[in-house]
């Protein structure tokens, strides 16, 4: 209530969604394509890297983080950072056993 500022409503044009959709489809094709080439241990890294790009696109455009209140963007960043740290710390154990 203290900060009820009625911001201007952002309407994402359809064209943006179509472009993002196309990008996502291309990236999906790339990940599927990459599995044909054997990259060994890198294949996990590549798959996760591409997935992360796709996820970021979904978060920024489909989920409107790019246009919404920046608070949401900040919180999402913190949550993913915390989660990554938790995985990393868990793996300190498994990698050094």
């Amino acid at each position: 209530m203290s900060h009820d500022t009625h911001e201007e409503v952002h309407i994402t044009p359809y064209s943006t969604y179509i472009i993002i959709l196309a990008l996502l489809l291309v990236l999906t094709a790339i990940t599927v394509g990459v599995t044909v080439i054997h990259l060994g241990t890198f294949s996990v890294a590549v798959a996760l890297f591409v997935a992360t790009i796709k996820g970021t696109l979904v978060l920024l455009y489909f989920m409107h983080l790019k246009f919404d209140n920046k608070l949401f963007l900040g919180l999402v960043a913190i949550v993913f950072a915390v989660y990554t740290a938790v995985i990393a710390i868990t793996f300190i154990d498994y990698l050094s056993r």
Binding site: T31, T35, S43, L48, G55, L59, M63
Partner: peptide
């Protein structure tokens, strides 16, 4: 409606990770 959309994108987001982790290990 936005919230329903957000929830649906979450479903998509999770699948984006499930897909390579289960289907694309070769």
């Amino acid at each position: 409606l936005e919230n329903a959309g957000l929830y649906w994108h979450l479903v998509d987001l999770i699948w984006i990770y499930l897909f390579p982790l289960f289907y694309l290990i070769h």
